[in-house]
Nucleic acid binder design. Structure first.
Lengths: 338, 338
DNA sequence: CTGTTAGCGCATTCAT
DNA sequence: ATGAATGCGCTAACAG
């Protein structure tokens, strides 16, 4: 097999003494071409190691067949799985995926959007941490599809794929109540984000439905990491009476709390039940495995891609916008009572 | 700010009644242009919300400013961190990153290479699972840089960034010997891959250096997951005398083994010491935290990007190829004796 | 069935 | 300091 560094449809055309149009037709399986010529072209292309230049095609067609995905970070199981889902679905439809990370920084998020727009992506899938939607609107103005997953903003004409965070908060809380807890502490996460507001709302609603009074002192504002969980647990330990359960909007904070509580000789779940959120792998690996709420990130990623593909393949000009909401699932393990 | 769906340098030129060449010069900060005109163009571009079309630039220049990264999977802490490192370094130099997953399937790996080549990436960074290098050679023939990280193949003219797996295997084994172990079992991982061969070689060498005879019965062929670790531990338990330590080439297999051993009422590290490999987050989260070997994935990713950037910015035609080998670090926790 | 040509958006020669 | 023209590789409209 002879492979030259460069070979285009022009090279094939030269080789065969035919025109580039014919080569293009053969390569693209068009009808108006003789089987003989087609065969000839295909063979030559194979022999020369021809590969279509996607860039030229993209420039010509205005479609890059590339989607940009913006996430807070890629090195967590949750977002990693979402990306896997997106990739699997999109690759099967000949799309490439560009991944960008924001580390939760709105400035980086804007920079990422610029990069992706420059790269002429056909769509931006985003799990946003922004307060302001103006940067997001620029995407739409460019005629590029925008789809939210997990962390969304309320915007018209934008599809989203999220989980029912309210329900997740509700059922976790309800389970704690069902198993005898009455003084349930709550670790909040970043309350600027819709997802955490919803989880808190679910928690409150479950309390209210069970005639338990909402107690501001039981709400701990935490970021979603181990250290913050420990800190919150330290404060919590000073409360009198002590809460009999913790519902943490993050697995990491739940883990920190568990470590702190055990360091203070409290038994879990006997003294306090603990539930986390996200079903990170470590929650099931622990000897004291942690009850949590599964968000089906793989499914979320797949669904996000599907929603886009549906819109894209929609023959009419009228684009349909969808708000897909997945149902979370409570996973009961050893950190809660039966 | 008025943002039209489409605006190119032609639109700016029209608006200002000047030529596209002048617009291009202004936008690219060229010298041969009057400050007045330049100012004018820049303002108009700003006002019109102009963004450079990377595709056109790439087609013109032959450089897409995009790098493709191929990994077995993105949803593991190890590869997630590598990708983060690559991203951070490359984004700072205005490169985009396309991520592809192989799930360890060579066919997918080849398909991914095709996709990336079609996309005209400037380089392919790969952690390969392939036996055959012919698909990899196609990358080079296209004039596209190829760089290995973590899982490499021996190929001429290809840079690589790996860790010293031999050393990792050696020091883990040496530590077990230092703390009194003599019958050290080994969980192998996929011995078709260089990294696992090297770890095993390090293990053997440490034994030999300490006058301990290599015992084939202590070698367990495992894949790198929890179940395989459990299975191997089950077999191991039938050995007489029982090994007094396990060195697992994978944290996941180590975890499985620990679970199985404890289910059989063995104490760790008193009855058996256990060391894993990779420093996955869960190893430190466990109550019985697991000793392991850190591979510095973030650093590995950054370094891979740096090696590429150095090559790329090298003004001469003579490309320098580098084999960077990072030193791993033994992390001692509760699963081993002091 | 096949060939010629224009144009996607840009940077860059060559003129002026 | 500025403009006109060219080509990167491809597809599609048009012509034959």
């Amino acid at each position: 097999m002879v492979t030259n560094k460069k070979n285009t449809i022009y090279d094939i055309a030269d080789q065969l003494n035919i025109s580039v149009a014919t080569v293009s037709r053969a390569l693209n399986n068009k009808t108006n071409i003789s089987p003989t010529t087609k065969e000839l072209v295909l063979k030559a292309a194979e022999k020369m190691g021809y590969e279509q230049n996607k860039l030229a095609l993209a420039l010509k067609s205005g479609k890059s067949k590339t989607v940009g995905v913006i996430v807070p970070r890629v090195d967590s199981s949750f977002f990693g799985s979402i990306i896997t889902g997106i990739e699997e679905e999109l690759n099967a439809h000949n799309y490439s995926v560009i991944i960008c990370q924001t580390h939760g920084d709105p400035k980086k998020e804007i920079a990422n959007i610029d990069t992706l727009l420059n790269s002429q992506v056909d769509a931006v899938f985003i799990s946003t941490s922004m307060k302001d939607v103006s940067a997001l609107e620029r995407v739409l103005k460019k005629g590029v599809s925008l789809i939210f997953f997990d962390r969304k903003k309320t915007m018209e004409n934008v599809s989203s794929v999220t989980i029912n965070d309210f329900q997740g908060g509700y059922s976790a809380t309800q389970h704690l109540i069902n198993t005898g807890s009455k003084r349930i502490a709550y670790f909040s996460g970043d309350l600027d984000l819709e997802i955490f507001q919803e989880r808190l709302a679910g928690y409150k609603h479950a309390l209210s439905d069970n005639g338990i009074e909402y107690n501001e002192n039981y709400i701990f504002r935490t970021e979603s990491n181990i250290d913050e969980g420990k800190k919150a647990a330290k404060k919590l330990l000073k409360l009198n009476p002590l809460p009999d359960a913790i519902f943490s909007s993050s697995d990491f904070a739940a883990l920190g709390a568990i470590q702190e509580l055990r360091a203070n000789n409290l038994n879990i779940p006997e003294d306090l039940s603990v539930i986390g959120f996200a079903n990170e792998p470590f929650t099931q690996f622990m000897e004291l495995s942690i009850s949590t709420v599964d968000q089906f990130p793989l499914k979320m990623g797949r669904m996000t891609a599907k929603v886009f593909l549906e819109q894209e393949e929609n023959p009419t000009n009228m684009v349909i916008h969808k708000k897909v909401v997945l149902e979370p699932e409570l996973i009961l393990r050893k950190s809660t009572k039966k």
